[in-house]
Amino acid sequence: NQASVVANQLIPINTALALVMMRSEVVTPVGIPAEDIPRLVSMQVNRAVPLGTTLMPDMVKGYA
């Protein structure tokens, strides 16, 4: 199964993503693939992302 990017902490709106904020986990539904974690670093989220939430492409500015 494909691992997705999951929030490792609460990520406030407009926060630039850092490695420590993300982990990979096999979840349903599938979100952003875990292999894209390096690409996500320094991109901003466009909403608050609670701990344990799967990151979806529409949550990250400039990802989709």
Rank of each mutant, 00 (worst) to 15 (best):
R23G: 10
T54A: 06
P33G: 07
T15V: 07
I32D: 00
V45G: 02
V60H: 02
T54Y: 00
P33Q: 07
T15Y: 12
N1K: 06
V26S: 10
T53F: 09
V27F: 03
A7G: 01
T28F: 10
M21P: 03
A3D: 09
V45L: 10
N14Q: 11
G31Q: 02
V60Q: 02
L51H: 12
G52F: 04
P29Q: 05
V60L: 11
P33N: 11
L17W: 02
L40G: 00
I13W: 13
A7D: 00
R47L: 08
A64L: 13
P50F: 08
S42K: 11
M43A: 08
A3V: 09
P29L: 04
A7T: 14
M43K: 07
V5L: 03
L40V: 05
V26G: 04
L51I: 14
S4F: 02
Q9V: 11
P33S: 13
V26Y: 10
T28D: 15
P38T: 10
M21G: 03
N46E: 07
V60R: 00
V41I: 08
V49F: 03
M21F: 06
E25N: 06
A64T: 11
V27N: 03
T53N: 14
V26E: 15
A64D: 09
I13V: 13
I11G: 00
V6A: 02
N14M: 10
I37A: 08
T15R: 06
A7V: 08
P38M: 09
P57D: 05
E35H: 09
Q2T: 11
Q9D: 09
A3Q: 09
V26H: 10
T15D: 03
R39D: 05
N8H: 07
V6T: 06
V60G: 00
P29Y: 03
I37F: 03
S42T: 13
L51V: 15
V26A: 09
L19G: 06
I11P: 01
P57Y: 10
V41S: 03
L19K: 10
G31T: 02
S42L: 09
P29D: 05
R23V: 08
G31S: 02
Q44W: 09
E25V: 07
S24L: 06
G52K: 04
Q44L: 14
E25R: 05
V30P: 15
Q9G: 05
T15G: 05
P29T: 05
V27E: 02
A34I: 07
N1V: 15
V30F: 12
L55Q: 00
V5T: 09
L19W: 09
N8Q: 09
E35K: 07
T53Y: 12
L40M: 07
P50E: 15
L40Y: 01
V6M: 04
